[in-house]
Nucleic acid binder design. Structure first.
Length: 602
DNA sequence: TTTAGGG
DNA sequence: CCCTAAA
């Protein structure tokens, strides 16, 4: 034990400049005091720094398996810590060491425990008065934990009233855990993972000054009351007195902030929020992967993971914001949680809009993730149409479309026109296809007319979707972020390509017909064909209604094309199983007539 | 690398 | 669209 103490000094973890700055800024020794600060999306670099930090620290933690040492070291320094009261078991130590202690140790020598990481660089935004307040409080009256609340007005407090008696986190159902989570962090969580919840709660409590004021201790995921000691009267009384309202209120707050905005303003963030959030951001990676493997830290799926989570969150958020106009922001109307309005509701909460993410509903601050719209921003057709005329007026274009079959670059635009503005130019393409088809039917020949197009036309889509087509992936690969809607033109090219080179020769088709379309890989072609095939056979029976039918959300593929697709499929023996089964159910070799008859039946 | 097929 | 097995 004693020997380990020097370690803190010796093995001082590589501290980032930001941390140094922090230390400098916060001269007062505070241990595990909650620092309110503003969280801002961290840059990738910052994240990396943190990760490395943790990583390094991790190694160190092995040298200091028992977190008690931290406390002791601190005590030795002459700063009694509330945390001393913690009876941390070896198992628990994992958790602790895994998270807060990492930071705690870093700062231990200075008796400054930082809860947040993200805020590091932004600490300048911390309300100094508040901080000082905090310091003084913690020095003479550690129990008095009213750091942020006062000034900020955000007065969330852990509702430990819920911890009366003992609680065995292991036994609690998810639901209960979520409740506990709520009580602990003052906000809702939608996380279902028990491990995660338990861990989070444990950490939350363990690191909470408030909790330390209580007589509870945590042992093996069990919160137990330990003897009678003086409690944080103020807190206790306040909470117990207005426990319910408090919770409700808090919930509303939590939900609010989680959904609408991850409060930008520091003043609105309760210390707990910050701490947990910060912690979260630190442990995000670890928590997820290896819940059990606490010892081993999987330093992985950060970006991707975060990204995915963000998406989920994003979804949730957007859902909740479904009717933003209807629900004034300041009404803590949360669809999913029945929050009864209370007198405590702060009506002055400002409607803040930030892009701060919350992780898994726990209100975690997510480093940074470019949240690009999944769905395309509505194409650029319109602007394109709007702009085009300048160079070539509609009339001209129409004429061209109509007559110049192989209009070099116009094909796509024509198609777009056709799609978007079902007006003027609309008919141009249709007839062509139809004609083509007819031609084919009668002569049994393949496309002749469109041949040029297929070869010549390029995918002038480029300009319609230059929008970050691909995004780097962890795996190093590039994955297409947005779906690139297939234009009629492309479909036609694909169909023609299949007709000419045969289905399966995606590579060929790609090279010959889609050389101008860098996106559209052979796989894409294949996929598209697969879809076309499906669509064609699905819609074939009702082919008539396709064109006439009500407009579909997604640009419907002209019946003629589907028709053709089916035909090609038929010719190339690509008849969908379902149909082929029925078709061939009768005879092994059914002739044309039979086939037609049967298909007609179907 | 290209295909084919599942997710 | 992504991923991957198989060719």
């Amino acid at each position: 034990m004693e020997a380990s103490e020097p370690k803190f000094e010796d093995s001082a973890v590589p501290v980032t400049s930001t941390i140094r700055a922090l230390e400098k800024e916060i001269a007062h020794p505070i241990v595990y005091q909650l620092v309110r600060s503003r969280l801002v999306p961290a840059t990738q670099d910052e994240i990396m720094v943190v990760e490395d930090l943790l990583e390094d620290d991790k190694c160190e933690s092995k040298l200091v398996p028992d977190t008690r040492q931290i406390s002791e070291s601190c005590v030795t320094e002459g700063y009694p810590l509330e945390r001393n009261s913690f009876q941390v078991t070896e198992e628990k130590s994992n958790v602790l060491v895994d998270s807060v202690p990492d930071l705690g140790k870093i700062d231990a020598p200075n008796k400054v425990a930082v809860h947040g990481l993200a805020p590091l660089s932004e600490l300048s935004n911390v309300d100094h008065s508040v901080r000082n307040d905090v310091c003084s409080h913690s020095q003479d009256a550690p129990n008095e934990d009213t750091p942020s609340t006062s000034a900020a007005g955000s007065s969330w407090k852990p509702d430990f009233s819920k911890l009366e008696g003992k609680i065995c986190l292991d036994d609690l159902p998810v639901k209960e855990l979520q409740e506990t989570f709520k009580a602990t962090f003052g906000r809702e969580t939608s996380v279902k993972d028990k491990q995660w919840l338990k861990r989070r709660i444990t950490m939350g409590l363990t690191n909470s000054c408030d909790f330390s004021c209580t007589t509870f201790i945590i042992r093996d995921n069990v919160v137990v009351k330990k003897g009678e000691e003086q409690i944080c009267h103020r807190e206790k009384s306040r909470i117990s007195a207005d426990s319910e309202d408090g919770v409700a209120n808090l919930n509303s707050r939590g939900s609010f902030s989680d959904h609408d905005n991850k409060i930008n303003d520091a003043a609105d963030l309760s210390g707990a929020d910050v701490s947990s959030s910060a912690l979260e951001s630190c442990n995000v990676t670890k928590d997820l992967n290896a819940e059990q493997i606490t010892a081993k830290r999987a330093r992985k799926p950060t970006k991707r993971y975060i990204e995915e989570l963000s998406e989920i969150e994003s979804r949730e958020t957007s859902e909740k914001l479904a009717s933003p106009e209807k629900i004034p922001r300041y009404q803590f109307a949360c669809p999913e949680t029945h929050i009864r309005p209370t007198k405590n509701v702060r009506s002055y909460a400002r409607p803040l809009v930030t892009r701060q993410d919350s992780l898994g509903g726990s209100g975690v601050q997510i480093p940074f993730v470019s949240r690009i719209r999944r769905s395309r921003p509505r194409e650029n057709f319109m602007p394109l149409l709007k702009l085009q005329p300048s160079g070539m007026d509609m009339a001209t274009r129409q004429v061209r479309s109509a007559f110049d079959i192989s209009g070099p670059q116009e094909d796509d635009k024509r198609n777009n026109d056709l799609i978007k503005t079902s007006s003027s130019t609309g008919w141009t393409e249709q007839p062509r296809i139809a004609a083509c088809e007819k031609d084919e039917h009668s002569s049994g020949m393949k496309i002749v007319e469109l041949e040029n197009d297929v070869e010549v036309n390029d995918c002038s889509e480029d300009n319609s979707d230059d929008n970050v087509v691909t995004v780097p992936t962890q795996k190093g690969g590039m994955r297409r972020k947005h779906h690139r809607p297939w234009t009629i033109n492309e479909v036609v090219k694909l169909v023609e390509g299949v007709a000419r080179y045969g289905a399966g020769k995606w590579s060929e088709i790609k090279r010959l017909a889609f050389s101008a379309c860098p996106y559209r890989t052979s796989v894409d072609l294949k996929d598209k064909w697969r879809n076309l095939l499906k669509a064609s056979f699905v819609q074939l029976p009702a082919e008539k209604g396709i064109l006439n039918s009500r407009k579909q959300a997604s640009v419907p593929i002209p019946a003629p094309i589907l028709s053709r697709v089916r035909e090609l499929a038929d010719m190339q023996g690509q008849i969908p199983p379902v149909l082929s089964v029925c078709k061939s159910s009768g005879h092994s070799s059914s002739d044309r007539s039979v086939h037609e008859a049967r298909s007609g039946f179907l």
